[in-house]
Amino acid sequence: MKSAIFSDWAEWLPRLLDGLWVSVQVTGLSLIIGLVVGLLLALAAFARTRLLTWPAVLLVEIGRGMPALVMLQLVYFGLPSVGLTLETYAAVVLALSLTTAAYTSEIIRAGLRAVPDGELEAADALGMSRSDVMRFVVIPQGLRIALPTLLGFAILIFQISSLAFSLGLPELLSQAYSIGANTFRYLDVLTLAGLLYLAVTIPAGWLVARFERRLSRHLTT
């Protein structure tokens, strides 16, 4: 009995690994795009650039307030009604990027603001330009402060990427469902899929914790 499960798992594994690879891809792309936008939003908020304020606030509020599942559905089904039809893959990346940008902009902004005012004053008093103060003092320290939280969020968005199954993107959960539909062995295949998620998230969590300890070394005063 037991060995039967393992031989089934061995049979399903290649498809599930294909799905896992898609999950990793959309997560990675969303993180790259979302983090760049999130950093820009955080910098704009930090500099209190009036120009960017209200679109930025809107994006952040919508991105954080809207359930990721709703965001996915809206991007996929809603954008065609305004003349923009995206392939499933692109729609998922766009929706997850928006969610990522909204959350990470707040995480990064909190990191930037945690840099002590005294250091900014000292940099000002030394005659450093606004952009140099950001580049050499605020951003490196702010990102370092934000990094553990950002990495934690990265693990979260990887889990959230499973919601893309609702749009039929062939990621890990979709693959598991379609195997389940063919074999009626939903529980077995979902267990294997769950283990594959854990095989990524648990080691990633450990790495984050180790990284966090290493980063805090110079900063303890």
Binding site: E119, E121, A122, L126, F136, Q141, R144, H218, T221
Partner: peptide
């Protein structure tokens, strides 16, 4: 910038860049 490079300032709380 001109002014600040001619006038140095030292603060009560040192304010070195810790990184």
């Amino acid at each position: 910038t001109q002014l600040r490079r001619r006038v140095g300032m030292v603060f009560q709380s040192f304010n070195l860049f810790p990184h």
